[in-house]
Amino acid sequence: MKNRQERAVLWDLDGTLLDSADNHWQAWRGALAELDLDLSRENFLDTFGQRSPAILDLRFPFLEEPEKTRLLDSKRKRYRDLTEHEGLFPGAREWLERLKDSGWHQAVASSSLRNVIEPTLEKLGIASFFEAIVAGDDVIVGKPDPEVFRAAAKKLNVSPDRCVVVEDAPAGIEAARRAGMRTIGIRSAHFDLEADFLADSLLTLPPDAFDRVLFSL
């Protein structure tokens, strides 16, 4: 049975906690160049937050499976080579600490692969803040399907209506809504997010933002 007294924050990773959008785009461009293809930044941002196979199917539906496999392998390798230059967005660590001290459960619910998420959290020194991780390879269908958020809430044993999702992408906001959760949208790349509460950055979130979203709306 879900615990209706507890409360949880489910964090997207890329573009929300982690300043990684440019590295993902550059990794895509490098991999696509191997097949004389390209991806504009606008088209990249429109799909940022979705799983890589879904992005390929949407943007390059004409590719054969061997080409898709080669591209995905190349993109993942290129991205890993770039991750040493990534860091947290300003305010991220402070919010993780504040929420933990206030008794909120926290989980990562991301489209990235587990073998990318776990070393990234360790490298940044924030792994201990999260009681659960649900990665893109843990679910059958990625965002905007709600499976990733429902799975995270289940791992935390917190009812969906007691969860606040922090996202930067339209697909993530839609997934959270379909899961029956409240949403905070961080406009790091998208300015038209249909979230319950919007902020330009984690630094501009008011101190009572999470309580306000969960209890006051």
Rank of each mutant, 00 (worst) to 15 (best):
K2H: 13
K2F: 14
K2M: 13
N3P: 05
R4M: 11
R7N: 09
R7H: 08
A8M: 04
L10I: 04
W11C: 01
D12R: 00
D14F: 03
L17Q: 00
L17F: 01
L18S: 02
D19F: 12
H24W: 14
R29I: 01
G30T: 13
E34R: 15
L35M: 14
L37V: 05
D38Q: 15
S40F: 15
R41N: 03
E42D: 08
E42A: 08
N43F: 11
D46H: 11
T47V: 05
G49C: 02
R51I: 01
S52C: 08
S52K: 11
P53L: 06
A54W: 08
A54I: 02
L56W: 07
L58D: 08
L58H: 14
R59K: 11
F60C: 01
F60D: 04
F60K: 04
F62Y: 06
L63E: 12
E65F: 03
K68P: 07
R70T: 13
K77W: 14
R78L: 15
R80T: 00
L82M: 10
T83W: 05
H85E: 02
E86P: 08
L88Q: 11
L88S: 09
F89H: 08
G91K: 10
A92D: 05
R93I: 12
E94W: 15
E94T: 14
L96K: 12
L99H: 07
K100P: 00
G103P: 06
H105K: 09
S110I: 04
S110M: 03
S110P: 03
R114G: 07
I117P: 08
I117H: 11
E118P: 00
P119N: 13
T120L: 12
E122L: 13
G125K: 13
F129Y: 09
F130M: 02
G136Y: 07
G136F: 05
D137P: 15
V139M: 06
V139C: 07
G142W: 14
P144G: 01
F149K: 06
A153Q: 14
K154L: 09
K154M: 12
L156N: 00
N157E: 15
D161G: 01
D161T: 02
R162F: 02
R162G: 04
C163G: 10
C163I: 11
V165L: 11
D168G: 04
P170Q: 13
P170A: 08
A171P: 05
G172N: 06
G172A: 05
A175W: 08
R177Q: 13
R178F: 04
R178A: 13
A179P: 13
A179Y: 12
G180P: 04
M181W: 03
S188K: 03
D192C: 08
E194Q: 14
A199S: 15
L203F: 11
L205G: 03
P206K: 07
A209P: 14
D211Y: 12
R212N: 05
R212W: 07
R212G: 00
R212V: 06
L214W: 12
